[in-house]
């Protein structure tokens, strides 16, 4: 365990300590529950983005994909717009749509050779467009008991959504640790040429990583729908940046090849605790985005300092 691995964890403990000392409202059990519940969606989304960052790519498609899956799931389960009542099958289909959109970014990356930040910006727009088309001016409110129950039902003090997020983190960690996809995602970020020269066809793995990331965003969109009780086009607004912030703060390098799902999860908790704590000590919630922007720039700068002399060229 190097400082790079333990640093975010220490920072998390320090921040929790500071807020606990400053605000009596922070150091309560119910606030701890709040923080865990508030972190759920971000944790799932960050799982997906982590694999993309591990490859050294970037993913800005989160808002579009989440929006598309949020509307899709709202229209497929019992709702006020049509007679569909697919239940969990609807959830699966929405995740499938999201995975398809993610696959699209991956395909554009490897087939058209367009850098990922451009393909994913494009796919985000496509996803928002699809969501707007499906939205068709009337908000789909869900009446499906299971889905809306996810946000309310509690088990051991945490909502079902939080347990879903915990399961996602576990699955993400297993994929990263024990599957070829996860190992190759690391290797692609570390040294793509070496991997390609040793006879590995990296293209299918890149597409697979973007597809899997899309599926995670899709689940995130479903979870937002469950929280709001309605499908919204803007379900994923801001999650792209929050997820990248969380992953980077957790110790996943933007250059790829480092970090992982567990690192990112620490980052998610850091970001969520910071958001929650700042509000409790009386900082306007509007600053939230600004704080995230500052810490992402600081975290990237800190990660780059060791290689500052070597990296003369930054684009």
């Amino acid at each position: 365990m190097s400082f790079r691995d333990t640093g975010p964890l220490i920072a998390l403990v320090v921040i929790v300590g500071i807020f606990a000392a400053l605000s009596p409202g922070f150091r309560t059990l119910s606030n701890a529950q709040n923080i865990m519940d508030a972190a759920a969606v971000l944790a799932v989304v960050t799982c997906g983005v982590t694999f993309v960052l591990m490859m050294g790519s970037i993913d800005l498609s989160t808002p579009g994909i989440m929006g598309a899956s949020a509307i899709t799931v709202a229209l497929l389960v019992a709702n006020n717009r049509n007679d569909n009542e697919l239940g969990l099958l609807g959830v699966a289909l929405a995740i499938l749509v999201a995975a398809g959109l993610g696959c699209l970014s991956g395909l554009a990356l490897v087939l058209l050779k367009v850098p990922s930040f451009m393909t994913t910006l494009g796919v985000s727009a496509v996803g928002l467009g699809v969501a707007t088309l499906l939205f068709a001016g009337v908000q789909p409110n869900i009446s499906d008991g299971t889905l809306s129950g996810w946000a309310v039902d509690r088990f051991l003090g945490l909502s079902t959504l939080t347990w879903i997020a915990v399961a996602c983190v576990l699955v993400g960690w297993m994929v990263q640790r024990y599957t070829r996809l996860g190992r190759y995602a690391f290797a692609i970020g570390g040294a793509e040429e070496v991997l390609a020269l040793s006879g590995v066809n990296v293209k299918p793995y890149k597409v697979a990583v973007f597809t899997m990331a899309g599926a995670f965003y899709g689940l995130g969109g479903v979870m937002v729908t469950s929280q709001l009780g309605a499908g919204l086009v803007q379900a994923g607004r801001g999650y792209d940046f929050s997820a990248i912030t969380a992953a980077v703060v957790g110790g996943t390098l933007l250059a790829g090849g480092r970090g992982g799902v567990l690192h990112s999860t620490v980052g998610v908790l850091l970001v969520t605790v910071l958001t929650n704590g700042l509000v409790l000590v009386g900082v306007s919630p509007y600053w939230q985005g600004g704080v995230q922007g500052l810490i992402v720039v600081a975290a990237v700068a800190a990660a780059v300092i060791p290689q500052r002399r070597r990296n003369q060229v930054t684009k």
Binding site: I58, G289, G290, V300, A301, R308
Partner: peptide
């Protein structure tokens, strides 16, 4: 000076300016 890729600086900037404008 910090040698951060431009899209990260400006993505961070986007978030910061949005927050400042809101506040």
């Amino acid at each position: 000076f910090l040698r951060i890729p431009s899209f990260i600086v400006t993505l961070g900037g986007m978030s910061i300016f949005g927050a400042v404008a809101l506040v």
